[in-house]
Design a protein around this nucleic acid. Structure first.
Length: 603
DNA sequence: ATTAGGG
DNA sequence: CCCTAAT
């Protein structure tokens, strides 16, 4: 793997392993954390890498932790440069903020949130972490906005620190930053408004230009489009709903196909084989550094030229916001709608077509980038210091990018998706990385599993084939690292599960897990539940004919002995009708007996 | 954190 | 198995 370096955002690479000294100073340039591939190519650092770096940062906040550039940290002026710079930055921000507070005093919660954010920004500025936004596009208003947008997460501070840097510099995005930052209007009563909302006041109408492929947008993006379309914000997270809504709005029609489509010039056009989108995609491939927003903007740029230069845009924003003192009112007015919308969305949440969408994304090789934002109500949440970042399954491709979804512990913060491009399947380049990551993750599991496998064998030597299966898996993991989290259920486990259900009843999965699966750390209560569901299905399905001890189904997965299935059904029938009181006592005994007489051969 | 369900 | 909503 290459070294991690900080490269100047504007695309000019830096010598490998070098850190521009100016980065330590108050240089406004935006940086991007990148990795140098073996062939010299610069690839945006993956989340994992960022995490790693970040981690290092925590260890020594005063130093740059670039893997191979540590020596340079000594030269870093650490604090010196920052404070002054900060105060400069603070100028526009502070006053505005207080000003706004007067105008529309946010709730104490809101204030805290704001304060917290502000502090965070400062912290970011203090620490040497710099962060990153796709420099290349730093002059793109949208990108800038995004970068700023996401200044919330601590865990991603590394990447978002740009915010402050941006302010002082390069583009006047700052006005865009500072202003929204201070706008309490968006502070919804629920306190749910994410920081990002603080930063973006104006709908990005450019989103509506040209072809609009709602299918390829993420919820957040859809919400943006929604805003651009209807002029108000929405918290609805139901993609379908958003898409339909937007489509209807844009086309002025209620006839919106359920299949994928593209909206072009207010007309719905069946989404053929992704013509336009693909072009954009290719573009992305080529540059490799385009961010999601860039993609959309580049697409829209084909149709429009304006709205591209930030200075204007920011001005517009100001003017706009000025002209729209009613924003808060508007918010208020539509508040009701929001609620109903949300309500509706929740009720209809049925179609979680995410998978379908994702699949089609891949299949059609369309161009989607997904920015994932998980917005959870903050609760009282102090964002947990350590963010849990989860490496999503297949990600990446064409040499850049990376893992996509991260959720900050209860921080309800959106993660920057700058330079995140999600595409087809993993490429070899990343394969190693991914494997590495997954291997590390699985290590523990493997270990325990192995030892467990042994245990299982001892306890249940009858289940020979199962053990074998597991062994195979373990082996596969060790060697071929093929499947992910797939562990075949051993007969032993199934029995434990059944017994557990018999004892505690279906539904007490955490209990069952604690008691019967204490050693099987890899079986979560959800797994138990799922397995039980499958068992039920199997037990009822196979009931008719087929008396064989094995299901004809797939010889692949371990066939479940009929007796067990029978018992499963017993339990199921027992628990479903009126079954609160049973468990332990006689029934348990009964079951046991039942089983014993029927499956001595297996146990 | 757990549970229930859909995918 | 994964994901999410709801508790």
């Amino acid at each position: 793997m290459g070294a991690l370096i900080v490269a100047e955002g504007n695309g000019e690479g830096l010598p490998c392993g070098s850190i521009p000294e100016k980065i330590c100073a108050s240089d406004p340039v935006v940086y991007q954390l990148v990795r140098v591939e073996g062939d010299g190519r610069l690839v945006p650092a993956t989340d994992d890498e960022l995490m790693e770096v970040e981690h290092l940062l925590e260890d020594d906040k005063r130093k740059f932790l670039l893997t191979e550039a540590k020596e340079h940290s000594a030269q870093c002026p650490s604090d010196e440069g920052f404070p002054s710079n900060m105060s400069d930055l603070e100028g526009p921000e502070g006053p505005l903020e207080s000003e706004n507070l007067e105008v529309d005093p946010p709730t104490s919660d809101a204030m805290n949130e704001e304060e917290r954010l502000r502090l965070k920004c400062e912290a970011v500025r203090h620490s040497p972490d710099y962060m990153v936004v796709d420099g290349q596009s730093s002059d793109n208003p949208k990108t800038s906005k995004i970068g700023v947008d996401k200044v919330q997460s601590e865990s991603t501070s590394i990447r978002t620190a740009t915010h402050p840097i941006c302010l002082s510099g390069q583009d006047l995005v700052q006005s865009g930053c500072a202003e929204p930052c201070s706008d309490p209007a968006n502070e919804t009563v629920s306190g749910r408004s994410s920081v990002s909302e603080l930063y973006s006041n104006k709908p990005d109408f450019s989103l509506l230009k040209g072809e609009v492929c709602l299918d390829s947008l993420t919820i957040r993006e859809l919400q943006e489009v929604f805003r651009a379309t209807f002029g108000r914000q929405t918290n609805v997270k139901d993609k379908l709903w958003l898409k339909r809504r937007i489509a209807m709005g844009l086309t002025n029609s209620c006839h919106v196909p359920t299949s994928s489509f593209v909206i072009k010039e207010n007309m719905i056009v069946p989404n053929k084989v992704k013509e336009a989108p693909c072009r954009v995609q290719r573009n992305v491939c080529r540059t490799g550094f385009l961010t999601t927003d860039q993609v959309t903007s580049s697409a829209s740029d084909r149709y429009e030229h304006s709205s591209k230069r930030h200075p204007n845009q920011t001005k517009d924003q100001k003017a706009l916001s000025g002209k729209r003192p009613g924003k808060p009112l508007l918010e208020y007015d539509t508040n009701e709608n929001h609620q109903t919308e949300q309500y509706a969305a929740k009720r209809i949440r049925k179609p979680t077509k995410r998978y379908i969408e994702e699949l089609s994304e891949v299949d059609l090789m369309d161009c989607n980038d997904r920015l994932i934002s998980s917005v959870k109500s903050p609760g009282h949440g102090e964002p947990s210091p350590k963010s849990q970042i989860k490496v999503d399954r297949d990600i990446i491709a064409q040499g850049n990018l990376v893992t996509r979804k991260d959720s900050l512990g209860g921080s309800g913060i959106r993660i920057p998706y700058v330079s995140r491009v999600r595409r087809s399947r993993p490429r070899k380049n990343f394969f190693d990385l991914m494997n590495f990551v997954s291997m590390v993750g699985d290590k523990r599991e493997l270990k325990t599993s192995n030892s467990e496998e042994e245990r299982d064998k001892e306890h249940v030597d009858h289940a020979g084939d199962n053990s074998d299966a597991n062994a195979d898996i373990s082996q596969a993991m060790e060697t071929g690292h093929k499947r992910k989290h797939h562990r075949a259920w051993t007969l032993c486990e199934v029995l434990k599960l059944v017994e557990g259900v018999a004892r505690y009843g279906a539904g007490r999965w955490s209990e069952i897990r604690r008691v019967s699966f204490a050693s099987h750390s890899y079986r979560t209560s959800v797994d138990l539940k799922d397995k039980w569901r499958n068992l039920l299905r199997a037990s009822f399905a196979q009931e008719p004919s087929d008396k064989g001890a094995r299901n004809l189904r797939k010889p692949t997965s371990m066939p479940i002995p009929t007796p067990i299935l029978l018992r499963v059904r017993e339990l199921a029938e027992m628990h479903s009708p009126a079954g609160i009181e049973f468990r332990s006592g006689k029934f348990s005994g009964h079951d046991r007996k039942f089983v014993q007489e029927k499956e001595p051969g297996f146990l």
